[in-house]
Design a protein around this nucleic acid. Structure first.
Length: 216
DNA sequence: CTCCCGATTGTCT
DNA sequence: GACAATCGGGAGA
């Protein structure tokens, strides 16, 4: 939607990334997503940390490892859509689907820097909690990110490659020299695969926690 | 049906 | 650093 400037020229809204951006393997897209901007209504987020999850049968850490189910069906759909899931009985996490229809793969959005709509994000994050939230913590962690951007299961399956209130745009791609990678966070299988990618030194990147088995 | 555990986080010691 | 909260997915009987 063009926005009218005072002189009558139209100022184009940022264009969504094309769908073929997402028509690649997750581990290839993931580092390329760093510095890109996810917009949802008033809140815009510069991505600083993501994790790639691979195709069925090849990545035991992926929700799609054992094939298609009602929960993970969106991952098997076309690329460039939100896959939102509910976990630990209380949290939502957000992925972007990739690879063509029929292939279950995606990228988990783990953290980012809120660059617009911080007031909205802060209100969402503080709801139901007495403690203050630092700006850098607004979307520092996948479930916090979902809250800050206002994502719930209602948003599962939405397209992020069309203009409107939800899309991913170019942002400022991060040069390879400032990208780090390592094992994914909190996964019990596929521990060796270094498919977590983050911007080196960025304060909005979440602390890495290795997987710990639940106590009895 | 039962059982186990999770792509987490906030709070307390 | 430890642990509770809280419930649904998926495996297996």
């Amino acid at each position: 939607m063009p926005v009218e400037e005072h002189d009558g020229h139209s100022l184009a809204a940022p264009a969504p990334l094309a769908r073929d951006f997402f028509d690649r393997p997750a581990h290839e897209i993931a580092p390329d997503l760093l510095g890109r901007v996810l917009v949802h209504g008033p809140v815009a987020l510069r991505l600083t940390e993501v994790e790639a999850y691979g195709v069925p049968g090849e990545d035991p850490a992926s929700h799609t490892y054992r094939g298609r189910t009602p929960r993970n069906a969106v991952m098997f759909g076309p690329p460039g859509h939100l896959y939102v899931y509910f976990t630990y009985g209380m949290h939502f996490c957000v992925n972007l689907t990739c690879l063509p229809e029929g292939t279950g793969s995606g990228i988990l959005l783990r953290a980012g820097e809120v660059i617009s709509g911080a007031g909205t994000a802060m209100a969402r994050r503080r709801a139901g909690s007495a403690r203050a939230v630092r700006e850098v913590d607004l979307a520092r962690g996948p479930a916090r990110l979902a809250v800050a951007l206002g994502f719930t299961l209602e948003h599962n399956g939405l397209d992020v490659c069309v203009p409107g209130s939800l899309f991913v745009t170019e942002g400022d791609p991060v040069v390879a020299a400032s990208i780090r990678s390592g094992p994914r966070t909190g996964v019990s299988s596929g521990k060796e695969t270094p498919w977590r990618f983050w911007i080196d030194g960025d304060p909005t990147v979440s602390p890495h926690r290795p997987h710990v088995p639940r106590r009895r």
